[in-house]
């Protein structure tokens, strides 16, 4: 495991919160690989994790961001706005990448656990702000076109539909029909919220969730999709789906 990801011994646990498992590790593995490539010279400034659980994934993202420097001489991507601000920003670009990350969960125990996990890893509270909400809910409008990195390890287990709304820890895994009921509620917003210059979503899916169908939906919205990681665990076939908006890769 690379050194700049969250440590299990410093990750907090709670009986009502989904524990990091093979899917979380696969997602973080794919995330770390992004930092070795695209994100190395263009670290995501704004990242959001939907459904943060114990905080293992968003803590890893924040640690990777803290450790990544902006390569000297590299242009910091501007906002397409005021050129002066971009210039001042370039001049001010310190060693550490400047970032603000956000995480949401519907489960208050998950948010309390995530906060503890972040603190255990020495991540300042203001670097990852937490909101209790459903998917992107209250952040969606104002983050339109601004999210550089969207992380989602959804409830993907195939269950009867009623279990999706059962509440408690079931919300962390119950995915309803095809395990897609929660995933499908997020999909229409993905292209909208990603930043146009390479905004990236990494999402876990099971083979039974029909990842090709999900990719087709995202591709119709103008995103480029591929599967960057696959693994077998507990008789499940897990995939990390990557969807990218614009940019040059």
């Amino acid at each position: 495991m690379p050194p700049n990801i969250a440590r299990i011994k410093d990750t907090c646990f709670h009986g009502e919160v989904y524990e990091p498992a093979e899917d979380s590790f696969l997602l973080v593995d794919a995330l770390a690989a992004e930092w070795d490539t695209t994100f190395r010279t263009r670290p995501p400034r704004v990242a959001v994790e939907v459904g943060c659980g114990t905080g293992y994934v968003i803590a890893s993202a924040a640690l990777l961001a803290s450790a990544s420097g902006i390569v000297p001489g590299d242009a910091v991507p501007g906002d397409g706005g005021d050129g002066e601000i971009d210039r001042v920003q370039n001049a001010a670009a310190a060693a550490a990448a400047a970032f603000a990350y956000y995480a949401t969960d519907i489960n208050p125990d998950a948010l309390a656990t995530t906060r503890a996990t972040l603190r255990n890893h020495g991540i300042a509270d203001e670097r990852v702000e937490l909101t209790r909400g459903d998917l992107l809910g209250p952040l969606r409008e104002r983050l339109r076109g601004k999210i550089d990195l969207l992380l989602f390890n959804p409830p993907y287990v195939l269950t009867p539909s009623e279990e999706v709304r059962a509440g408690g820890i079931a919300a962390a895994w119950a995915g309803g029909k095809d395990g897609r009921e929660v995933v499908d509620r997020l999909l229409p917003d993905v292209a909208d919220v990603l930043s146009p210059d390479g905004g990236t979503m990494l999402m876990i899916l099971l083979e039974q969730n029909k990842p090709r169908e999900v990719m087709a939906v995202l591709e119709r919205a103008g995103l480029r999709c591929d599967v960057v990681r696959s693994a077998s665990a507990d008789e499940e076939r897990l995939h990390v789906l990557r969807a990218v908006k614009g940019g040059d890769r």
Partner: peptide, 9 residues
Amino acid sequence: AAFLLHTLP
């Protein structure tokens, strides 16, 4: 400062 100037706009 980099973060502030990035966030401001």
